[in-house]
């Protein structure tokens, strides 16, 4: 009467293995996008597109330098490189190219390179470079625009006087949305 006993063990194991496979695969993949970097990159593009530089800086490529944040750099390259800023095409450069570039229109210094800001503000004094940062107190250290995080949203504050000294004129949209 027990002509079948041995076969069950094998098939039940198969069945349980199938169930186990599904248990192991139950967690969804969480995307690794750096959303804050997406926002910062777009802001840099908006600052470039909605500000005005002196006539002598409206020739050649429009250069955006990124210091200390590879995610912002990668997104700038992927989404905004070669896009027109007026009659210029946007070019993205990294920290090691900043000192040799003919003119950097926008320079983003990440908080991981906080210590380098003093050097950049000194080197770029009297040059029409918009310096953008992302840490508290950076405006007092010479930055023109500083990102702030408010309830998880990235906003920005401005040093209008500093911008005037650098002869970079922010557009209405930029002024309008800056935190006063």
């Amino acid at each position: 009467m027990d002509f079948h006993i041995r076969k069950y063990g094998f098939y039940l194991i198969l069945s349980l293995a199938a169930c186990l496979g599904s248990v192991l695969a139950c967690a969804q993949t969480i995307p690794d996008d750096n959303t804050v970097a997406i926002i910062r990159a777009n802001y840099l593009y908006q600052f470039a597109n909605n500000s005005d530089w002196p006539a002598e800086n409206k020739k050649g490529p429009f250069i955006v330098g990124i210091v200390g944040n590879s995610d912002v750099f990668d997104i700038m390259v992927a989404k905004y490189a070669s896009k027109p800023i007026g009659s210029q095409l946007l070019t993205v450069i990294g920290a090691n190219e900043v000192s040799t570039a003919p003119h950097v229109h926008v320079l983003f210094v990440d908080r991981s390179k906080k210590a380098d800001l003093a050097k950049y503000t000194r080197d770029l004094r009297g040059v029409s470079t918009l310096i953008v940062t992302n840490w508290e107190g950076a405006l007092a250290q010479g930055a023109h625009i500083n990102f702030l995080s408010i309830d998880g949203s990235i906003r920005f504050e401005m040093n209008k006087t500093g911008m005037q000294e650098s002869a970079v004129t922010p557009g209405v949209k930029i002024v309008q949305w800056a935190i006063q």
């Binding site: 967690a27 969804q28 993949t29 969480i30 995307p31 996008d33 959303t35 997406i38 926002i39 777009n42 802001y43 593009y45 908006q46 909605n50 989404k79 905004y80 896009k83 949209k173 930029i174 949305w177």
Partner: peptide
Amino acid sequence: VIHYNQAVFMYRKIDHETDLFDM
């Protein structure tokens, strides 16, 4: 993760054609 993905898909749409206000 579903809620986070929903947010990420919104962020991914931001590009050079996105107005500052829209962003």
